[in-house]
Design a protein around this nucleic acid. Structure first.
Length: 269
DNA sequence: ATGGTGGTCCTACCA
């Protein structure tokens, strides 16, 4: 029995709800995790999401910024919205699948701070916040997933950790998202937690993998200066179920696109 | 070295 889980930074769910519908019609993921929904819970287009076939919806929004959501064809339980770094930012939501082939699986959906432009925590509070956020992830017991724990972590982690997760590791070495300190910290979060990087387990380096292309690139497809900022991690107990993943690159070329594209992971039980 | 585009919500801030 398969389970498909998709993750997508949608960059305003209200502006792009029809874009979400287009994606869902074509790919029909069982679970869809969004980031950067950018609206308060009362403004969330719930009826559209239900029309797409998702009866189970968990949202964590705020006005104008951030915001995460989970849509599911299977019932959900134990919804958690954890604050990080003593801020009100809506950057995390977790749910547990209550039924279906992966019943009992915990799903964490993250939107890690982007970190601003200057990669020095001493002068850039946004970069300090990003590093502090990663520290809290690393130290959170809920993200320790050894033994028989069934868990998936997805989201826009705003870090491209490996050399071939960016178009030029040399040229991005001092660019926030690919600095050595971030790459190391994210790797530590995964290793300390016991997580398996699903995309890189199935497609090892040196093949390049990108999920984001800047809006500022005049011809994003030809230039192809992308980065892998969006991730799918599995607990070791779920790793044997991993079957494949797809990065929906074509979505970057749709009308009024997000700068991120969906990643769809398929597990089989 | 710089500036490039797009989102929210109306003025700057964030990505």
């Amino acid at each position: 029995m398969p389970l498909t889980v998709a993750t997508w930074n949608i960059n305003s769910v209200r502006l792009r709800i029809e874009t979400v519908a287009r994606f869902v019609e074509a790919h029909r993921p069982d679970v869809l995790c969004l980031q950067e929904t950018k609206c308060m819970d009362g403004q969330f287009p719930l009826s559209d999401v239900k029309r797409m076939g998702y009866d189970h919806i968990a949202i964590h929004g705020q006005k104008g910024y951030h915001g995460v959501a989970v849509f599911s064809r299977h019932a959900l339980k134990d919804v958690e919205r954890r604050p990080f770094c003593d801020k009100q930012d809506a950057r995390h939501i977790a749910v547990t699948l209550a039924e279906g082939p992966a019943a009992g699986t915990r799903i964490h959906n993250f939107y890690v701070p982007a970190g601003g432009d200057e990669p020095d925590p001493a002068i850039n509070p946004k970069f300090a916040h990003k590093l502090g956020f990663l520290d809290e992830m690393e130290n959170w017991d809920a993200l320790k997933v050894g033994g028989g724990t069934k868990a998936i972590l997805v989201g826009d982690l705003n870090i491209a950790p490996l050399e071939h997760d960016v178009w030029s590791s040399k040229q991005l070495a001092k660019v926030v998202s690919h600095t050595p300190v971030e790459r190391r910290r994210l790797t530590e979060v995964a290793e300390r937690g016991g997580w398996v990087d699903m995309m890189r387990s199935l497609t090892p380096e040196p093949e390049k993998l990108f999920t984001w292309w800047s809006y500022r690139s005049p011809d994003w497809a030809a230039a192809n200066k992308g980065r892998r900022l969006d991730h799918v991690w599995l607990s070791p107990a779920l790793a044997p179920a991993m079957k494949g993943f797809e990065i929906l690159r074509e979505a970057r070329g749709w009308d009024r696109p997000s700068d991120h594209v969906p990643v769809i992971a398929t597990l089989d039980f």
